[in-house]
Simulated scan of single mutants.
Amino acid sequence: MSRRRLRPDELDLWQHVAKSADPLHKRPKPVERPEPTKPAFRQPEVKPQPLPAFDIGEMTPPHTQTHYFPKTTGQRLKAEPVRMDSKAFTRLKRGKLAPEARIDLHGMTLDQAHPALNRFIVTSHTRGMRLVLVITGKGAREDPYDPMPHRRGVLKRQVPMWMRQAPLSLMVLQVAEAHIRHGGAGAYYVYLRRER
């Protein structure tokens, strides 16, 4: 629908009608509000304190403190709580207690060593033995020309973990690194629970 322009006589009529009409929604006249007064209290201006002299990076720790060196297996075993009699543990650490049986895992792969260790611990436990010796060795020496450094002694790291897993965890009371006369860092004392 196109819009057409009003003729002058129609425009006069429309203005006459518009003057006589009352609007539907009357808007109230705006009320003049007084301007808000400023509070009498003024906060004092705080002058910023000058910064003390400093060097960039002076609070950072020395470079050597940021490195995380993982603990060795021997250090982790020393940090574990003592679950056996403390006097017997002291004698054990001094090499005064003689192991009742021993197993040598030298030259075995993980697949060979794990079932052999399980068999040995279960058999020793059923025979009523309390202290056995597990010889793992210290591991092969590192190759100085190897581009990727790796930790020595796969069996040395795995044996304590196997002792914490079922079924051995039910029989093993304490694992500790052996005294030098029984193999030192290349062997572990395994103190077994009493058979019930």
Score class of each variant (00 low, 15 high):
Thr37Phe: 08
Pro167Asp: 04
Ala79Asp: 04
Pro61Thr: 02
Pro62Asn: 08
Glu195Trp: 07
Asp146Ile: 12
Gly57Ile: 08
Ala176Gly: 06
Ala98Gly: 05
Trp162Tyr: 02
Asn118Gly: 10
Ile180Gln: 11
Glu100Pro: 04
Arg33Gln: 14
Leu133Gly: 03
Val132Gln: 01
Glu32Arg: 13
Gly153Arg: 03
Gly186Ile: 05
Phe120Tyr: 01
Asp143Cys: 07
Arg91Glu: 12
Ala40Leu: 13
Val175Gly: 02
Pro160Arg: 04
Phe41His: 10
Asp85Cys: 08
Ala40Asp: 10
Leu155Val: 03
Lys38Leu: 15
Ser169Ile: 08
Met129His: 04
Pro52Arg: 03
Gly128Met: 06
Val17Leu: 11
Val172Gly: 00
His106Phe: 08
Trp14Met: 14
Ala21Tyr: 01
His106Tyr: 06
Glu58Ile: 15
Val122Cys: 02
Ala101Ile: 02
Ala187Asp: 01
Asp9Met: 15
Lys96Asp: 13
Val175Thr: 05
Asp146Phe: 06
Ile180Glu: 11
Lys19Leu: 07
Arg152Asn: 08
Ala98His: 03
Glu32His: 11
Thr109Ala: 06
Ala88Phe: 01
Ala98Arg: 06
Pro23Asn: 09
Thr126Glu: 12
Leu155Gly: 03
Leu13Arg: 00
Ile56Val: 14
Pro99Ile: 07
Gly183Met: 03
Lys87Gly: 09
Tyr68Asn: 12
His179Thr: 07
Asp146His: 00
Glu35Phe: 08
Ala140Met: 09
Leu170Ser: 10
Asn118Lys: 05
Lys78Thr: 13
Ser20Ile: 13
Gln174His: 02
Arg181Pro: 00
Asp111Asn: 10
Pro36Glu: 07
Arg193Val: 08
Pro62Val: 08
Asp22Ile: 13
Ala40Glu: 10
Val190Ile: 10
Glu58His: 06
Gln158His: 09
Leu77Trp: 03
Leu155Glu: 04
Tyr68Phe: 13
Ala116Arg: 03
Ile56Glu: 07
Gly183Gln: 02
Lys38Thr: 14
Arg141Lys: 12
Leu51His: 02
Tyr68Glu: 14
Gly184His: 01
Arg3His: 11
Met108Val: 07
Ile121Tyr: 01
Met163Thr: 03
Pro52His: 00
Gly153Phe: 01
Phe54Val: 15
Gln43Leu: 14
Asp143Ser: 08
Gly139Asp: 01
Asp9Phe: 10
Gln112Asp: 05
Ala116Cys: 07
Gly184Arg: 03
Arg91Ser: 14
Val154Cys: 05
Lys71Met: 15
Glu80Ala: 14
Arg33Asn: 13
Thr109Asn: 03
Arg152Val: 13
Thr60Gln: 10
Glu58Thr: 11
Val122Trp: 02
Asp22Ala: 15
Met108Asn: 04
Gly139Cys: 05
Val122Leu: 07
His63Met: 15
Met163Glu: 01
Leu92Phe: 03
Tyr191Glu: 06
